[in-house]
Simulated scan of single mutants.
Amino acid sequence: MSHTIVPIHAIKGRGTATHLAHRFTSLERDAFDDGWGTLQDAEPRAPLATEVTFKDARSAITRNDSPDIYFDYGLNPYRGCEHGCVYCYARPTHSYLNLSPGLDFETRIIAKRNLAEVLARELAAKSYVPQMIALGTVTDGYQPVERELRLTRGALEVLQRCRHPVGLVTKGSGVERDLDLLAPMAAQKLAAVYVTITTLDGALARTLEPRAAAPYRRLRTIRALAEAGVPVGVSVGPQIPFINDDMEQVLAAAYEAGARTAFYTVLRLPWEVRPLFREWLQLHYPQRAERVMARIQDMRGGKDYNADFATRMKGSGLWAELLRQRFHKTCAKLGLNRERVELDVAQFRPGLLSGQSSLF
Results as ranks from 00 to 15, higher is better:
residue 94 H to V: 07
residue 72 D to A: 14
residue 60 A to S: 10
residue 80 G to Q: 07
residue 77 P to L: 03
residue 71 F to K: 07
residue 74 G to F: 01
residue 91 R to K: 09
residue 81 C to K: 04
residue 69 I to A: 10
residue 89 Y to W: 15
residue 92 P to L: 11
residue 88 C to V: 03
residue 76 N to P: 03
residue 90 A to Q: 08
residue 86 V to C: 05
residue 52 V to M: 11
residue 65 D to A: 15
residue 63 R to H: 10
residue 52 V to N: 08
residue 93 T to K: 12
residue 50 T to V: 15
residue 87 Y to I: 06
residue 95 S to Q: 11
residue 95 S to I: 09
residue 53 T to D: 05
residue 63 R to W: 00
residue 53 T to F: 13
residue 83 H to Y: 10
residue 68 D to M: 03
residue 61 I to R: 03
residue 82 E to T: 11
residue 89 Y to I: 04
residue 68 D to H: 14
residue 77 P to R: 02
residue 66 S to C: 11
residue 74 G to H: 01
residue 50 T to M: 04
residue 64 N to S: 07
residue 96 Y to K: 14
residue 82 E to L: 06
residue 58 R to G: 15
residue 83 H to W: 06
residue 80 G to D: 07
residue 64 N to T: 12
residue 69 I to Q: 06
residue 56 D to L: 13
residue 80 G to E: 08
residue 63 R to C: 05
residue 96 Y to H: 14
residue 68 D to L: 01
residue 89 Y to L: 10
residue 81 C to R: 05
residue 79 R to W: 05
residue 90 A to I: 09
residue 97 L to P: 04
residue 53 T to G: 07
residue 77 P to T: 00
residue 86 V to G: 00
residue 55 K to V: 15
residue 50 T to D: 04
residue 54 F to A: 13
residue 60 A to P: 06
residue 58 R to S: 14
residue 69 I to F: 15
residue 51 E to N: 14
residue 55 K to I: 14
residue 54 F to Q: 13
residue 74 G to P: 03
residue 61 I to C: 07
residue 56 D to A: 12
residue 56 D to I: 07
residue 95 S to W: 12
residue 75 L to G: 00
residue 85 C to R: 03
residue 65 D to H: 12
residue 60 A to G: 06
residue 56 D to H: 13
residue 91 R to Q: 03
residue 78 Y to S: 04
residue 89 Y to S: 09
residue 56 D to T: 11
residue 91 R to I: 00
residue 59 S to I: 11
residue 59 S to L: 11
residue 79 R to Q: 12
residue 97 L to C: 13
residue 71 F to A: 11
residue 64 N to P: 00
residue 90 A to M: 09
residue 69 I to L: 13
residue 97 L to G: 08
residue 94 H to F: 12
residue 87 Y to Q: 01
residue 77 P to D: 00
residue 52 V to H: 09
residue 79 R to P: 01
residue 77 P to N: 06
residue 86 V to S: 00
residue 59 S to W: 08
residue 81 C to T: 07
residue 53 T to R: 15
residue 73 Y to Q: 04
residue 60 A to Q: 06
residue 86 V to L: 02
residue 83 H to T: 04
residue 84 G to F: 07
residue 63 R to K: 13
residue 62 T to R: 01
residue 89 Y to Q: 06
residue 75 L to P: 03
residue 94 H to R: 15
